[in-house]
Design a protein around this nucleic acid. Structure first.
Lengths: 233, 233
DNA sequence: CCACGTAGGATTGTCAACAATCCGCGTCTG
DNA sequence: CAGACGCGGATTGTTGACAATCCTACGTGG
């Protein structure tokens, strides 16, 4: 353990608050569109408004919150275009991470971590626990990017994975078929293990495309339908 | 002009401050490693410490600043590993943006914007103005990603381009040969115009690899040189 | 002469109060 | 009766001051 004997709090409180709110958004505690009142949140977290505002700005920079001046902070609601955008960005990041990983000589530890995540997915699928399955899926991709050793890809990936969870939480129904999901992840791991870059990228892109299709097929709520050109002056 | 008759300030002041400091870092006004005192900065910008701290947290989230608790905020200094990381991330982002752009039917406006940037590069090269050349280079890649229409790729790209400028500013010497730089950018534009995805990605990756080599060849200051394994207990 | 402990100065972290702005509702007028 | 105007409540934006922490320099003891 290297987390012992550290000063009680090395991380800034703003970072802690940001983490807390981020996971709350991820878990669906704050559904998209909800307004986050500062005094309420500050009181609930036991901090003052100063650090809380700093944390909020951090989340705004990540694109998880949307700030309207003198109006308040709102959880960004993702539209169909956003779902596609999240997954194109994820594809770019994870593809790069996978290629970075494939260039490394010793991929055994990374493979082991992915295998662990897959095992968690299997257990969740067997138990029929959709939330745990999503957690394990999340962890798989997080480990994939983390193992690449690229701090920037890792940072981007974290935000993108949170947004992915926001999409999934918004439409909790629509059960993803666990067996095909598991099969895809196993193929990804095997491709990494065998150093097959072609297969890896191909499957990864298909995996992402599948996810987008699965999400958008059920919730084709193409957003406001504003008829711009038809408005008289 | 659509920037007229807007409320005097729609953007939050924290965002404005962040932009100001970001460009200051980019321009090399704050070299890597310098400490940014809050009271000093706040006084110089004419704001209080509250909004300034919010802006700082935003920049920390972007990875441009490093925060040490009770110590202060420092401009992150980029090491050799960071240079490589910035460029791998840039490759991932710009490749995805280019592919997105290639999938679009009408690429004429994007091509036009890239041509404008190339013209600016040509002018700067002719005048021997290295700063203007870097500006135009920056603009070329920013336009490339912006034209893709992906908000997330765009946001990532902005930070990465700032970090690129930090690398370049740190080692202002080492003149990049303008003619080859121009040639590479022209090839990128032509590939986009002709819809040649294969050529596009290949040249883009080579372009990035070239940049890394150019930067690291001169400043091979592999940082601390800590000899881990040789230390006696 | 070196190591330890301590005081000083400066900087960051946090807080509570003040000022500016916006939304909803009631009222008034054409 | 419909629309516009104005007011009250609530929320955000900003400010200044207070408290906690850290680095530097100095003095002391071994």
């Amino acid at each position: 353990m290297d987390s012992d004997l550290e000063p009680i709090s090395r991380r800034s409180t703003a970072a802690i608050i940001a983490d807390r709110i981020r996971s709350a958004i991820m878990r669906g505690t704050f559904p998209p569109g909800t307004q986050l009142g500062e005094v309420d949140l500050a009181a609930r977290l036991g901090v003052s408004r100063g650090p809380l505002r700093e944390a909020m700005q951090r989340l705004v920079a990540e694109g998880l919150l949307r700030s309207e001046r003198h109006r308040g902070l709102f959880v960004r609601d993702l539209e169909a275009a956003d779902v596609r955008d999240v997954y194109t960005a994820r594809t770019a990041v994870e593809r790069a991470a996978a290629l970075l990983l494939l260039a490394e000589p010793d991929r055994a530890p990374a493979v082991a971590r992915l295998t662990t995540a897959i095992a968690a997915m299997e257990a969740a699928a067997a138990a029929g626990d959709a939330v745990a399955l999503a957690d394990a899926d999340h962890e798989f991709h997080a480990e994939l990017v983390a193992a690449s050793g690229s701090p920037r890809l890792h940072r981007m990936s974290r935000t993108l994975l949170v947004e992915t969870r926001m999409c999934l939480a918004a439409l909790q129904q629509n059960p993803p078929p666990p067996e095909s999901l598991l099969a895809e992840h196993r193929v990804l791991r095997d491709a990494l293990e065998q150093g097959d870059a072609e297969r890896m990228t191909t499957v990864l892109e298909a995996h992402m495309a599948d996810a987008v299709a699965r999400i958008l097929d059920v919730t084709l709520v193409e957003p406001p339908e504003s008829v711009d050109g038809a408005l008289p002056a």
